[in-house]
Every structure is written in structure tokens, then in C-alpha cells.
């Protein structure tokens, strides 16, 4: 049985004109195995982040369901930890206190909380920065805190919403590598939303390609590249072939929907 099941999930909003509705997601079906690394790509506005918000239960679907271990997901919880694109650290908390947040909410006693938080900070190589405040860190470091915070609650599924979208190209690649290293070790199920095709192919076991509004999964591309992966993979022929396949799928979507709106916040 799959660990996470998304069944006929639809979401519509009231539209701009009164009485009209805007269909953001249309009967999305996804099934994810334990320990799988699934990436989702799609044009901006296709609802890929919305899908993640529904899995996190920050939004309620209009119809359909999300099931974790065969149980309907109805409210947010630490079994589905989210890593935010804008890091979303609490600026008044030190790095370690930020990581401890989820553990606090799980009522973990303070000594154990500290120990756990330090373990995950060491994992993202930020142990030395535990008493810094977020504003003293670079973007890449802040997102590593975000990842440590999400891992610390020992989630069943790690949801990542364009986590490297706010970082520059070099840092992005380094972060991708680090994420793979952590994943190889922890073997958490990861759902990773991105608009970067390279990133999607490079990281994922499977890439879900979504269509623009209404959002649907138009194709699943299984990525049979060997693991552990490193950056040299990007120049291999198989990699380029996958990129080509996905680009071709997306290109049709983009043409059908006008321009590829690069920097839309609602991607």
C-alpha cells in the first residue's frame, strides 16, 4: 500500500466575477511510496504549491481526499512537515530555538529538545550557528535551518515548496546535493515542488508534470538514474533526455496558456 494517497483531489475558488468559480486543481491522483522522492514541475499558476498546501491541510479541498497511511488527512500536523520557499523562520528566535519549535509543539521535554535540535543542525552543518538569529545568516543557511526544523519533528512526509526558489544558482546546486545526502541517510518520503526542470530530474525518483489551470497531473516520468547522484550527472545523455521529455510536455502547456510566467508568486 502506498504511504500517501491523493485521490480525485479538486479545489475551486470563487472567481473574479461573481458567481463564477476558478478551478485550481482538477481531480488530481497521486500515489507515493514510503521513502520515495517525488518532484512536481509545472508552469506557474498550475496549482503545484496548492497541491502541497492541500497535503499539509492548510487548505481544504472542494472534493477528493488526501490519505496518509490509509487515514484521511483533515488538519495540519508534524507528520507532514513543510519547508517554505521564504524559509519562514521566526525572526525573534535563535537558530536552535527555531529548530526546537516543532518539538515544543510536540511537548518534547526541553533537554531532549535541545539535543534533537542540535543533531539536526549538525546534519545541515549549522551546529556552530545555533545561537545566531536568522537575520545574521545567508539565504542558503536560513533554508538549512528550515530543513532542520522540518526534519526535527520526524515527519512521515517532508513537503518542500520550491525550497531553493529564493536562492541563487550556485547555492541552489549545493543545497540540492545536501538534500540528497540527507535523504540518502534519513530516507524520508519527500514531495518537492519546483519550476526548475533540471532540479526536478536531478533530485527525483519520479517527476510529476502538471498542466496549467486547471491543474492536473498530465504525466509521471520515472527517473531511472543511478543513486547516489552528483552534479556530473547533469552532463550525461540520459539526464538530458529526461529534461527534453519534460520540457516537451511543459512546452505545450505553456503555449496553450500564453507566457511562462517566471516569477509569479502563485506558482
Amino acid at each position: 500500500m502506498a504511504q500517501l494517497e491523493v485521490k480525485d483531489l479538486s479545489l475551486s475558488y470563487p472567481g473574479s466575477r461573481s458567481g463564477s468559480t476558478f478551478l485550481a486543481l482538477d481531480k488530481v491522483n497521486v500515489s507515493i511510496e514510503k521513502g520515495e522522492f517525488v518532484t512536481i514541475v509545472g508552469p506557474s499558476g498550475c496549482g503545484k504549491s496548492t497541491l502541497l498546501m492541500l497535503v499539509a491541510a492548510l487548505l481544504r479541498p472542494t472534493s477528493g481526499a488526501v490519505q496518509l497511511n490509509q487515514k484521511d488527512v483533515t488538519k495540519p500536523g508534524p507528520d507532514r512537515a513543510l519547508v517554505f520557499q521564504d524559509f519562514a523562520l521566526l525572526p525573534w528566535r535563535t537558530v536552535i530555538k527555531n529548530v526546537e519549535l516543532g518539538l515544543e509543539l510536540k511537548k518534547v521535554p526541553s533537554a531532549q529538545r535541545r539535543k534533537e535540535a542540535l543533531k539536526y543542525l549538525d546534519m545541515v552543518e549549522l551546529g556552530k550557528f545555533c545561537n545566531h538569529y536568522p537575520h545574521q545568516l545567508s539565504g542558503g543557511m536560513r533554508q538549512r535551518v528550515g530543513i532542520a526544523r522540518a526534519l526535527s519533528v520526524d515527519p512521515e512526509v517532508l513537503l518542500m515548496d520550491e525550497p531553493f526558489g529564493a536562492l541563487d544558482a550556485q547555492i541552489r546546486q549545493v543545497m540540492g546535493l545536501e538534500l540528497l545526502r540527507i535523504w540518502e541517510r534519513e530516507r524520508k518520503t519527500i514531495i518537492f515542488v519546483t519550476h526548475d526542470i533540471d532540479e526536478a530530474v536531478y533530485l527525483g525518483d519520479r517527476v510529476l508534470v502538471m498542466s496549467a489551470s486547471p491543474g492536473r497531473v498530465i504525466q509521471e516520468v520515472k527517473i531511472s538514474l543511478p543513486r547516489p547522484r552528483d552534479l556530473s550527472l547533469r552532463n550525461k545523455a540520459e539526464f538530458t533526455a529526461y529534461r527534453e521529455t519534460i520540457w516537451n510536455l511543459l512546452e505545450k502547456q505553456v503555449q496553450a496558456n500564453g507566457a511562462w510566467r517566471q516569477d509569479s508568486a502563485l506558482s
Partner: peptide, 26 residues
């Protein structure tokens, strides 16, 4: 967004007030 963080990690309304609203409004 800060309130959303608390919700994601299972925070209840009282946690949101104590851990986000009060520090943010300080």
C-alpha cells in the same frame, strides 16, 4: 506566514498567540 508555520507543526490557537502573536506584536 508565521502563523502558518505554527499550524503546519500542529500549533493550537493558544500556541499561535504565545509563540507568534505576542512576540510579533512586542
Amino acid at each position: 506566514q508565521m502563523i502558518r508555520v505554527l499550524k503546519v507543526f500542529g500549533g493550537k490557537p493558544i500556541d499561535i498567540i504565545l509563540k507568534v502573536i505576542i512576540p510579533a506584536s512586542l
